[in-house]
Design a protein around this nucleic acid. Structure first.
Length: 292
DNA sequence: TGAATTTGACCATG
DNA sequence: CATGGTCAAATTCA
């Protein structure tokens, strides 16, 4: 899918703002003794969000309503994402700003006959973009494979507690060749472990989920911890180990500004190195390409 | 030291 | 047979 560039840009900006906020959140003391820096920091956050808002409210925002990048019409993709919708165990959707869309895949059906549902997740340009998106569950990577015709390898994940709870859930994560900022995540099987430790501590509210643009998200109570975190910068198996803790004013500000669950990168150190990711990726993928 | 990730090999499917 | 999917030993990490 092609992500609308305007949307991408706005999302990137928003994510950056969130990242900045998180940076403050995680190291408030760093700013305490440096008023100038703090002021500039605030300016930057405001500027980033303003720019994002500009992009969203400008004439070019038509894509919000008439996005043609999706094979399906928008109302569809404003629905909650397909995976787990009947299990009462919706993914946390670490990044509310992501565009989710479902695609029917003609993937061959394995003999186990697991249903396969795919969603597309827009990755932020910032942060550790080479890690698969988190959906609120904990996954364990069990393989990675170069896919023919794809520049990027596909990662194979299964539920961390597969053994403990015989949870059959799996997912395949692949970065789109033509759009490296988008992951296609294929979910296979449902979680049977949602009452277990696999499930996020604070299950996402069942009703309102972020809509596709992540910008129409009406206020839904974010999980007490890490709602701002995209839970995206951690290892493949994402535990919100470095919990955010209590909300900070900046987060409130961000929340107030956007009323959205837009996530941000989990990796604080990536905040000021927004562009490092790609380099890394290429490095890594070059390596990956050597096999097979 | 246990758990997670990496990675080459093997298996299944079309 | 080519390719996608999984296994499992080796390695890394916390």
């Amino acid at each position: 899918m092609e992500v609308n560039p305007g949307m991408e840009e706005a999302l990137s900006l928003i994510l950056r703002g969130c990242s900045l906020a998180r940076d403050f959140e995680s190291n408030p003391l760093n700013f305490r003794n440096n008023i100038n820096f703090l002021a500039r920091f605030c300016d930057e956050i405001l500027g980033v969000f303003s720019a994002a808002k500009e992009r969203l409210s400008g004439p070019q925002n038509q894509w919000l309503r008439t996005s043609t990048s999706q094979p399906m019409d928008l109302p569809r993709i404003q629905m909650r994402p397909p995976p787990f919708e009947d299990s009462g165990n919706l993914p946390a959707m670490g990044f509310g700003s992501s565009s989710y869309s479902s695609t029917s895949t003609k993937a061959r059906r394995r003999k186990d006959g697991m249903a396969k549902r795919t969603v597309r997740v827009a990755a932020p340009r910032i942060g550790n973009t080479e890690l698969p998106p988190d959906d609120g569950f904990t996954w364990r990577k069990y393989g990675q494979k170069e896919i023919l015709g794809s520049r990027f390898p596909r990662g194979y994940f299964r539920c961390t507690h597969q053994k403990l709870y015989h949870c059959p859930a799996k997912k395949h994560v692949q970065r789109l060749d033509h759009d490296p900022h988008t992951f296609e995540v294929a979910y296979l099987g449902d979680h049977t472990c949602h009452m277990s430790a696999t499930a996020p501590s604070a299950p996402p509210p069942p009703s309102t989920l972020p809509e596709v643009a992540g910008l129409h998200m009406t206020q839904y109570p974010p999980p007490s911890s890490g709602w701002l975190s995209m839970e995206y910068g951690g290892p493949a198996t994402i535990r919100s180990s470095k919990d955010v803790g209590d909300q900070f004013p900046v987060l409130d500000m961000v929340d107030a500004m956007f009323n959205s669950g837009t996530g941000s990168s989990n990796s604080v150190d990536s905040i000021f190195g927004a562009n490092v990711g790609e380099e890394h990726q290429h490095h890594k993928w070059e390596k990956d390409n050597k096999k097979n």
